[in-house]
Write a protein that binds this DNA or RNA. Sequence first.
DNA 1: GATACAAGCTACAGCAGATAGAGGTTCAAG
DNA 2: CTTGAACCTCTATCTGCTGTAGCTTGTATC
Lengths: 142, 142
Amino acid sequence: MLAIGTLSRRTGTKVQTIRYYEEIGLMNEAGRTAGGQRRYFEKDLDRLAFIRHSRQLGFSLDSIRELLDLSDNPSQSCAEADSIARRQLHQVEQRIKRLQALKKELKRMVAECDGDSVAECKVLEVLRDHAECLTEHDGIGA
Amino acid sequence: MLAIGTLSRRTGTKVQTIRYYEEIGLMNEAGRTAGGQRRYFEKDLDRLAFIRHSRQLGFSLDSIRELLDLSDNPSQSCAEADSIARRQLHQVEQRIKRLQALKKELKRMVAECDGDSVAECKVLEVLRDHAECLTEHDGIGA
DNA sequence: GATACAAGCTACAGCAGATAGAGGTTCAAG
DNA sequence: CTTGAACCTCTATCTGCTGTAGCTTGTATC
Ligand SMILES: [Zn+2]
Ligand SMILES: [Zn+2]
Ligand SMILES: [Zn+2]
Ligand SMILES: [Zn+2]
């Protein structure tokens, strides 16, 4: 039986985060000692590791929930899991595209400023007026 | 004098968001009509456009606050503004790097799955075990 | 068995950066 | 003067945690 701190150390997840995952139903409710402390099995550790690794790969908690459900039914087809992963890949690709456009603009404005007074600052000039930009960048940057 | 909806339309910012910017002190408190509705000058429109454009380029509201302060004092050196932009560029570059590593892993796991049962799904296999990954990807993916 | 103290517990607040809705009021055109 | 779109405030919600306060439990050592 593992204490929550052990799960925390072995998966690199903060203790509060593990409790949070339980609260939102991503982790099963843990068993408790007589005094009320959580105790876990190895399978709980595995589940937490799955969650953490999926998070590191950028999956949302909702997607992870689906993936865990699928993972619990080994006889099913994995088409669903694959499509979640493909969707995630697509999102990552879109984000990279957006960021590359931002990078281009930022690079240009930084390069073009001679570092004189604010009144002639190219950086601020571009920020004031999108017409100074070469690319479109709709939506809010992230 | 411009109503809030006009600012909203002309900058592509939701009305609630403009009020939110006022609440957090990013926009100045607007003047009001006798009946309590906000009314703006052209300079407020400019300020909002600056904020929105900066957001589109990925700057945080805190950075934008600094940039606006600088922009209001045209006689200063622009070194500060430039360094904020360089910091932003750096952040964007880091994010691109992380996302490219994620993309690589996602692409590989999607490609390697034959689409059979969950039990043999490569996607789920990788998620279960980071040892299957080729790259490191610490921190949580975004 | 007593004691110390690390590690656990709950409950709640807060972060960024908005966005949505309820329920009521004002403005401006016709 | 009436209509109705646009405005108002206030509160709640979202994602994914993280931090704090104040208290209790578990365990190692004496
Ligand atoms: Zn400059
Ligand atoms: Zn632009
Ligand atoms: Zn598969
Ligand atoms: Zn991995």
